[in-house]
């Protein structure tokens, strides 16, 4: 290769290490970039295809049926038009299909037979129409496949939805129960404090645990208002919000009475801070959806209480 001053160390690493030469080691980069590039190129190639198929599969059933029928009719017209315009069209028996209404019906009939991949063979395409017929057959199979799978999966989707709804309702129930527990716990702590002044360590730990549960449920309600697609019915939501508001109220009460004396522990502080932050984002105007005035009122109240905690 043109190098003039090359020499070969015949012994190689084995000889070098055996006689105790200094050895350097290094960490390999995580992966060899070459195969990764190859994979990426491959996926990007199939990507357009799969995206197209995904779009098709995501269409609702009626749209898919419409598209399928439309495609068959369109192909029928093309077969018929080709017969008129260029002279080579479909052949039924030994005669060409005529450019009249009957011919149009025959063309559409042929289109259906092709798209459903029945292929009786009583009407046959001639010339370039063969290519078109094959294209239609392939497309028809694909779309029909999507259609059938849609029909089959419909029942399954219903079931999944049912399961989702049930778990969702279960979760709401649990949130409500937990909020009630948080409320009674906070109330008990408040009472203890009113009687004794300073809380013993055991009670502080119990308070911390309560705040932790509260924080979790606060997060759930926040997610419910901001993220989930499913909404609980208004009654359930209102009771949730009301429960949340009274819990926050207890926290506020506890805080104002606790400030004179008791040192707030670090986990308690962090928990309350998180709750306040989350609750601060709940108000009638700031949540993504619009709710009934009663709900908005509750939400506004929640935000107001959150500000008091902070």
């Amino acid at each position: 290769m043109g190098y003039k001053n090359i020499r070969h160390y015949v012994g190689g690493m084995a000889d070098w290490e055996e006689k105790g030469g200094p050895v350097e080691k290094m960490d390999l980069p995580v992966a060899d970039p070459t195969p990764r590039q190859f994979v990426r190129a491959e996926t990007s190639k199939t990507w357009i295809w799969s995206r197209w198929l995904d779009t098709l599969a995501n269409w609702p059933l009626d749209r898919l049926v419409g598209f399928w029928l439309g495609m068959i009719l369109a192909f029928g017209f093309v077969y018929w038009g080709a017969g008129i315009g260029m002279g080579w069209g479909l052949q039924a028996g030994n005669a060409s299909v005529k450019p009249d209404f009957e011919g149009l019906l025959t063309s559409i009939y042929f289109s259906f037979v092709t798209a459903l991949s029945i292929g009786y063979g009583d009407v046959i395409p001639v010339g370039a129409l063969r290519v078109l017929a094959i294209v239609e057959g392939a497309a028809g199979l694909l779309i029909f496949g999507c259609l059938v799978s849609k029909l089959v999966s419909r029942r399954q989707e219903e079931l999944t939805e049912e399961i989702h709804r049930t778990t969702f309702e279960d979760r709401l129930d649990r949130v409500r129960t937990n909020l009630h527990l948080v409320f009674s716990d906070l109330g008990a702590v408040l009472q203890l404090q009113a009687e004794q002044g300073v809380l013993p360590g055991q009670i502080v730990r119990r308070l911390e645990s309560t705040v932790r549960v509260f924080r979790g449920e606060m997060q759930t309600i926040h997610d419910l208002l901001y993220r989930t697609q499913v909404l609980p019915d208004e009654e359930a939501l209102e009771s949730l919000l009301a429960n949340l508001a009274i819990c926050l109220q207890s926290v506020v009460d506890l805080q104002s009475s606790q400030l004179n004396g008791q040192q707030r522990s670090q986990p308690l502080d962090a928990g309350l801070h998180a709750i306040s932050n989350l609750a601060n984002e709940i108000c009638g105007e700031c949540v993504p959806r619009t709710y009934a005035p009663a709900m908005k009122q509750w939400m506004d109240q929640i935000q107001e209480l959150a500000r008091k905690i902070a």
Binding site: G2, H8, G11, D15
Partner: peptide
Amino acid sequence: KARQLFADVGRELVIYCGGPT
């Protein structure tokens, strides 16, 4: 890759591998 890594053909090079082969 040799050309990219060692553009100077007059350079003093020592090549070696794993062991005496």
